[in-house]
Amino acid sequence: MASGAELTSKEYITHHLTNWSVGEGFWTWHVDTLGWSILTGLIFLFSFRAVAKKANAGVPTKWQCAVEMVVEFVNDTVKSTFHGKSAVIAPLALTIFVWVFLMNLMDLIPVDFIPYSAQLIGGAMGYDPAHVYMKVVPTTDLNMTIALALGVFILMIGYSIKIKGVGGFIKELTTQPFNTPWLYWFNFILEIVALLAKPLSLALRLFGNLYAGELIFILIALLGVWQLPLHFPWAMFHILVITLQAFIFMVLTVVYLSMAHEKH
Rank of each mutant, 00 (worst) to 15 (best):
M1Q: 11
S9M: 11
E11S: 04
I13N: 00
T14Y: 05
T14Q: 03
L17K: 03
W20C: 07
V22Y: 11
F26T: 15
V31H: 03
S37N: 04
T40S: 01
I43F: 08
F46C: 06
S47C: 02
V51Q: 04
A52M: 13
K53D: 14
K54R: 13
V59L: 11
P60Y: 15
W63P: 00
Q64G: 07
C65W: 15
C65A: 15
A66K: 07
V67H: 04
E68W: 15
V70H: 04
E72I: 15
F73V: 10
V74I: 09
V74N: 03
D76Y: 13
V78I: 12
F82Q: 05
K85S: 11
V88I: 15
A90M: 15
T95I: 13
I96R: 02
F97L: 10
M103P: 00
L105G: 01
L105N: 05
M106T: 05
M106D: 01
I109E: 02
F113E: 05
F113W: 12
I114Q: 07
A118E: 10
I121R: 01
A124F: 14
M125R: 07
D128K: 02
V132Q: 01
P138A: 15
T140G: 01
T140L: 02
M144I: 11
T145H: 05
A147E: 11
L148V: 12
L148N: 01
L150W: 14
G151V: 13
G151K: 04
V152P: 00
M156T: 10
M156F: 14
I157S: 04
G158V: 15
F169M: 07
E172N: 10
P181T: 14
W182V: 05
F186V: 10
I189G: 00
L196K: 08
P199V: 12
L204W: 12
L206W: 13
L206H: 06
L210I: 13
E214A: 02
L215I: 00
F217M: 00
I220R: 01
V225E: 11
V225G: 03
W226S: 08
H231L: 11
A235N: 10
T243V: 08
A246V: 03
A246P: 00
I248E: 08
M250T: 03
V251Y: 08
V251F: 09
L252C: 11
L252I: 15
T253K: 01
T253M: 08
V254I: 13
V255C: 03
Y256G: 01
L257Q: 05
A260H: 05
A260P: 06
